[in-house]
Design a protein around this nucleic acid. Structure first.
Length: 111
DNA sequence: CAAGTGACAATAA
DNA sequence: TTTATTGCCACTT
């Protein structure tokens, strides 16, 4: 048991958290990492999403950088698609590639 | 076994 | 202000 890492549990927690993001809201990698108790693994949060074992179930498009920015190369269908999805859910954009975290940031009170 | 890589983030210049 | 570098920690080569 318990090898040097609980990578499996870590990944599972990332998916669990991301799936709980409500429509019209977004979360940052660091935010999720911190929520699951590992703020230093922000990079691996993205790595977990890249693994994306459950496409269509995990709203990866609701996960963005700490600045709310979306890179053009990591969306499943393209940054344009991601932007459309977020806008369609009610997410507000400050710029073409920046989400208004002031309004759409989650958790907005930890529920 | 060691070094390099990576859907990030924070700090320095 | 933007750009560059460092740190983090697991996975890949």
């Amino acid at each position: 048991m318990a090898q040097t890492t609980n990578r499996e549990g870590f990944f599972a927690r990332v998916y669990e958290t991301v799936e709980q993001i409500p429509e019209g809201f977004v979360a940052t990698y660091g935010q999720i990492a911190k929520l699951i108790g590992e703020p230093r693994r922000a990079r691996y949060v993205g790595y977990a999403l890249h693994a994306n074992p459950r496409p269509g179930v995990i709203p990866c498009h609701r996960v963005v950088f700490a600045d709310g920015r979306i890179c053009e190369g990591f969306a499943f269908g393209g940054a344009g698609v991601q932007r459309s999805l977020l806008e369609g859910e009610g997410v507000v954009f400050r710029d073409a590639d920046h989400v208004d975290l002031s309004v759409s940031r989650w958790p907005a009170g930890l529920e």
